[in-house]
Design a protein around this nucleic acid. Structure first.
Length: 173
DNA sequence: TACTGGATTCACT
DNA sequence: GTGAATCCAGTAA
């Protein structure tokens, strides 16, 4: 079980999104396997980094950092910034609980609530409070599809998930 | 300064 | 399947 190198996140956003499926997320001592991700790039109208703003600057200026934001005034979403010198991030949508996780993680808002992820983690480098490990698990069937639940979504398949995994978020499995 | 709507979730029908 | 909850970033003026 070893931590991913910082350079892992410097690659193309879509590639990072795909390769993150199956890795182990550790926050506050709680462990879960990443079973669903989505790629957000700067040429994507649904992405915060479609325009550079004070909030989205983190996605342009860093890679391998946590990007946490509040959605609908009630829920947080955890992203990992990607690509050196370009805007991009991967949204962690769902986890399969492994250790110390009591709540549900089958949705971006739920996993943040279960892992006590809040705005205090925004901007922190991966490897500090938020860690992502490789335990050697090799997912056999990573499915890809268009994003769900986003009105502005493109029809390009940038969502990645473990087919058949019961912890993938509601809807298309 | 004021307004609008969202990378969601859950209760209810 | 539908709608409410909730509040801040982004935008317009």
């Amino acid at each position: 079980m070893k931590a991913l190198p910082h350079s892992f996140f410097a690659s193309d956003t879509v590639e990072v999104a795909q390769r993150l499926v199956g890795k182990v997320l550790v926050v506050h001592g709680m462990k879960g396997r990443i079973v669903e991700t989505e790629a957000y790039r700067e040429n994507d109208p649904a992405s915060h980094c479609f325009r550079r703003t004070a909030r989205s600057a983190l996605m342009f200026d860093t890679y391998g950092h946590a990007y946490v934001y509040l959605i609908y005034g009630m829920y947080h979403c955890l992203n990992v910034t990607t690509e050196r010198n370009k805007g991009g991030a991967v949204l962690i949508r769902a986890l399969e609980p492994l250790e110390s996780i009591t709540g549900k993680c089958d949705g971006p808002g739920k996993l943040c609530r279960s892992l006590k992820i809040g705005l205090s983690l925004n901007g922190q480098k991966i490897g500090d409070t938020v860690r992502i490990l490789d335990d050697g698990f090799v997912p056999s069937t990573i499915e890809t599809s268009a994003r769900i639940g986003i009105t502005k979504a493109t029809d390009v398949p940038w969502r990645f998930f473990l087919k058949g995994n019961p912890y993938v978020s509601r809807g298309k499995r």
